[in-house]
Nucleic acid binder design. Structure first.
Lengths: 203, 203, 203, 203
DNA sequence: CATGAATGAGTATTCATTCAT
DNA sequence: TATGAATGAATACTCATTCAT
């Protein structure tokens, strides 16, 4: 019966998604080495063996999760933002606003950011360190920064340093969101200020 | 004839220190779960058994290392700085300058900062989460921020949020120093700007 | 589909029992320090890891085995025997006969006796030395001895000394059964003679 | 200087003896596997390294200790006793008396007996199980028993079984002496009774 | 000679992975 | 397909032995 076939496929897809989503948060919180399959399975609410039906190994599961963090859509969005015929200041404000609201509302987004950044800080032999995702993100951000510096709205400094700093702060608050129960989240204005000069009194 | 009592004590002290120092960097880089005793011992350049002469377990070693990151001296220095009869702006500049130069020169300092901050981000059952070190540091920093806000040199915002943000950035660059080979370190001026308003054109 | 809950429980119970039974003999023969988990697991015919699913540590396994040696049933049987309206001589003969036939037929009984007695001879910090089992057994035996002495069938001497001696001989032959391949087992009459006077020629 | 040479030799001999004596008790109490060199050295009151000046290994130390338990003199004494032109009953009484008084007074004797008997109960690959000492002792004892049976003073039964039983009881009380603080030692008459018939009322 | 710090082979314990049900 | 009991390779920890002082 084709319908049963489809239904089966559907269930599989659901389970797989659930595993990926729940594991992402778990890995983000505990790290690769700090995550035990037995604990992870319990946390997801499935048997240990079930994990191995969907993923060949702990490593492969982690790799797939990591691949998810490299969100093509994020890059497209950023590229689209860049192409808008508006000032860099506005772009930075828009970007910062988007980032902060997702960070606040969406645990999975925070986990993505955290995992992705942690890769740079990791002695992992099984994930190619320099991800094109990061570097693409950085490159576009640098471009935006250069535009802003020309327009006089962005602070002085090497664009690469500033881009690195900007995303570093985003990472920082992704961590805070994931790990600490009580903390003061910065506002989107605070984030934008990493790049934007303070308003001048008289101009 | 027995080895001289003093000499023995001396040797023990030296070995113990060496283990603590080298382990701190290793743990900071690899995390607790990510650190294998066999690798750690090799890294330090001692036998595995030697570790267990000085520390009862991997966990105890980690605990002792962590205790070292709570540097009384750092707090004293910050307190002394606070007491100086100078503007908050100058204090923040001095503090930022000190931090950045230590961060750049001293791997062990970077490791201390990183380990200490990581504790806030950790599901550790064996280290009492809320360390007084952090909170003391934060409290003094908040005081400095309030002074600066009164004097008009520090940006608006909840002092606790700003203190948290400031030390977050320090943590961020401790990580970068420890983990990434190529990166653009921010300057002490950049760090100070987390708190300080940009200079106004006309005033 | 999950394995049936009941079947799982059943399997666990079986494995657990098998481990306990086989370990008892092994520990009795080799002692605690002389038993390697790797050898023990091989002897039982399971993987090393399996042991740790059922018991937290080698020490806990040993503790549980030891608990098994304190057989409530043995004490009940002895108490019932005591209550019978027969002479002490008959009681002693019956008891000795029971003990010797179990000792000869049942390895596990020999192991129980050996382990239990060994505890008195052990510098164990993890098993509470003075077991009530021993003392209860002794107390009842002493009572039987006193009865026999009144009746004139039991040899002179402190009942506590005689009880200790009697069970000591049982221990001795439990050891012989467990360890030596060639030895001359004493008979139940020999055992009874520890307490009973030889038949008098004329009476 | 020859004198210094001698003195040196003397000191060596003393230390060696001390190690042997103290180790014998320690091994008797804890068994081979249960004895740690570090603990043993502390118990003797010397450095760990010192042990290895006098003995090549833990195993060799144990072997030497065990060799000491095979006391040629004991056998000579027993042989001499056998040759005396007295009844078996008297021989058995004399022997039992000697054994019990040594057992009570001399820890080292108790340790010797215990270690020697334990060898029969041990899965040791490094000490030749069937010691000629034991078997010589047994053979002479059997002869004595046969004499006694002829004379009518010794109980019925296989001489080998009775000899085994007799020395088993000696072993039992060596253990009690070594391990238990509170116990009722049997008397030499009790020990002799293992072999000797009770006095007949009328004869 | 005597010592005890250092070592690494040996032993206990954990955990990713497999597999019978 | 889903499960969790079983496994053994990997990892933590111990202890007999060595060696510089």
């Amino acid at each position: 019966m084709p319908k049963s076939q489809d239904r089966c496929q559907e269930i599989r897809e659901e389970t797989r998604s659930k595993i990926l989503k729940d594991s992402m948060l778990y890995f983000a919180k505990n790290g690769f080495a700090g995550t035990k399959i037995s604990d992870l399975a319990k946390h997801i609410g499935i048997g240990q063996g079930t994990l191995y039906i969907y993923f060949k190994s702990k490593e492969e599961l982690f790799r797939e999760i990591f691949a998810l963090t490299n969100n093509r859509k994020d890059i497209e969005d950023l590229k689209a933002l860049m192409r808008l015929p508006i000032s860099a200041k506005k772009k930075i404000r828009k970007l910062s606003s988007r980032i902060m609201s997702r960070l606040i509302q969406d645990d999975v987004y925070a986990a993505k950011v955290a995992l992705n950044s942690q890769m740079m800080f990791e002695q992992n032999n099984f994930i190619s360190a320099e991800t094109t995702y990061q570097s693409t993100l950085y490159r576009i951000t640098e471009k935006m920064i250069r535009q802003g510096q020309k327009e006089g709205s962005v602070v002085e400094g090497l664009p690469v340093k500033l881009a690195d700093y900007y995303w570093g702060v985003v990472y920082l608050y992704a961590l805070k969101k994931l790990f600490t129960t009580e903390y003061e989240m910065i506002s989107d204005v605070d984030l934008a200020r990493v790049l934007l000069k303070d308003k001048q009194k008289r101009d």
